[in-house]
């Protein structure tokens, strides 16, 4: 009975389909009711309701390819032109990009660290079974998708000082574009780490920490040139204010040691003043006086 129904539907659709080999989504529905059941909740369902798209760009066959052979073979993955579980990662990416390549956020997807590691669309998105509220993610929460591979980052967000990702107030995609990113405007444009720049092509930190953005009359040069990561560990740290060291003075002195050809002037980054005796605890908390360490309008030494 089921086979008769399938063949009847297939016949009707073939008659209606100009391409001949496309059978239409209603045919798929007969054998895949579990997928069809919630399909109207899927963003891809829009292609069916649009009514003005060619049959090869809509519904099930828009992604899986023409279904005639699959129907005639009475099922089986090998008869599906695009069976994603059997396809190599590169082909999965190309298939999805047929429609999704136009967006600016996917401009670098072909060179992204994810693509180079064979992590393509279906690695993070579940088209038919997504428990997420948006973006068809494979897990209910975005962080769980990322933690699946980035366990070291999961450890960083479990540290005492961290951005509140586990608590649900910050998401990975607030700072990162998993589809790849342009060259950063800091740190010699190297290793984009999927960091998604802010609107003005600046570090994404300034989206929330706008008071550190400037422009300042007196910029602390490394903030602009090397980026916030010079002093801070952005995911999480064992140290206050996400600093890379447990105390401030070692963090500052590691650069301000006056040696080499480093710095703005090429003759070493300015050594601290001789009036600062590091044995005195008063001088060990540098930012107690150099308050505007990210940049100042009023003082070249960041005192006010």
């Amino acid at each position: 009975m089921r086979g008769v129904l399938i063949l009847a539907c297939a016949g009707l659709s073939l008659w209606a389909s100009p391409g001949g080999e496309y059978v239409g989504s209603n045919v798929c529905r007969a054998c895949h009711p579990d997928v069809w059941l919630n399909s109207y909740k899927n963003p891809h369902y829009k292609s069916l309701t649009a009514g003005d798209l060619a049959v090869e760009k809509t519904g099930c066959e828009g992604c899986h390819g023409a279904g005639q052979a699959h129907v005639e073979a009475r099922g089986g993955k090998t008869s599906i032109p695009n069976a994603f579980s059997l396809m190599p990662p590169g082909r999965i990416l190309d298939t999805c990009l047929t429609c999704h390549s136009q967006d600016l956020s996917r401009a670098n997807v072909k060179r992204s660290a994810h693509t180079l590691a064979d992590v393509v669309c279906t690695g993070c998105h579940s088209i038919h079974q997504s428990p997420a509220r948006r973006f068809l993610l494979a897990r209910a929460e975005q962080r769980e998708v990322c933690y699946g591979c980035h366990g070291n980052v999961r450890g960083q967000f479990s540290m005492p000082f961290k951005h509140r990702v586990n608590e649900g107030v910050v998401q990975c995609a607030d700072c990162h574009n998993p589809h790849g990113s342009f060259a950063p405007t800091w740190r010699m444009s190297q290793r984009p780490r999927l960091v998604d720049p802010a609107l003005g092509n600046e570090t994404p930190c300034v989206r929330c920490h706008a008071d550190k953005r400037g422009p300042f009359t007196f910029e602390h040069s490394p903030v602009r040139i090397e980026g916030c990561e010079t002093c801070h560990a952005p995911h999480g740290a064992m140290n206050a204010r996400l600093l890379r060291r447990p105390v401030v003075f070692t963090l500052c002195l590691e650069c301000h040691n006056g040696t080499g050809n480093f710095g703005r002037q090429g003759d070493g980054i300015q050594l601290q003043s001789a009036s600062h005796s590091m044995a005195d605890p008063r001088y060990q908390q540098c930012t107690a006086c150099h308050l505007r360490i990210h940049g100042s309008h009023s003082d070249s030494r960041f005192l006010r």
């Binding site: 366990g151 070291n152 450890g155 960083q156 002195l253 040691n257 009036s275 005796s277 044995a279």
Partner: peptide, 18 residues
């Protein structure tokens, strides 16, 4: 899951004492 994150850094310093 288990992660071990090791970091060791050594940097030359100069500073003033008294």
């Amino acid at each position: 899951s288990y992660a071990r994150l090791h970091l060791d850094t050594v940097t030359g310093l100069q500073f003033f004492v008294a």
